[in-house]
Design a protein around this nucleic acid. Sequence first.
DNA 1: ATGCACCCACGTCACAGCCG
DNA 2: CGGCTGTGACGTGGGTGCAT
Length: 102
Amino acid sequence: MAATTGDMPTYQIRAPTTALPQGVVMAAWPGSLHSPQQPAEEATCKRELRLMKNREAAKECRRRKKEYVKCLESRVAVLEVQNKKLIEELETLKDICSPKTD
DNA sequence: ATGCACCCACGTCACAGCCG
DNA sequence: CGGCTGTGACGTGGGTGCAT
């Protein structure tokens, strides 16, 4: 289904583990202070934290992917110019080397 | 003005792979 | 092995251009 292995795009560059994005505040809540009461609340809190981190991860992932695609597009442009030049050069050489039929 | 098709950015879920 | 992270897939909402 999703995420076929062995075909990881090159834009996937492991960044050094950064802290939470700006404006994101880690919720310090009583349940996390080694008192296992309110397990449901802890689960909710964990889930929200996970969603928040995943939201940011998805944004960053898309940003990197866009950058990667841009990079590929500009590379295509460069190669197209290069290819055109080589074709022109080849035509010129053909003209020079081919015997005149007249 | 409105309905429609298309695009884009987003949030979420599911999964793969990595790391302690 | 369990938790964490990155990413593909999917659904959704807002913006835009176009035909009617």
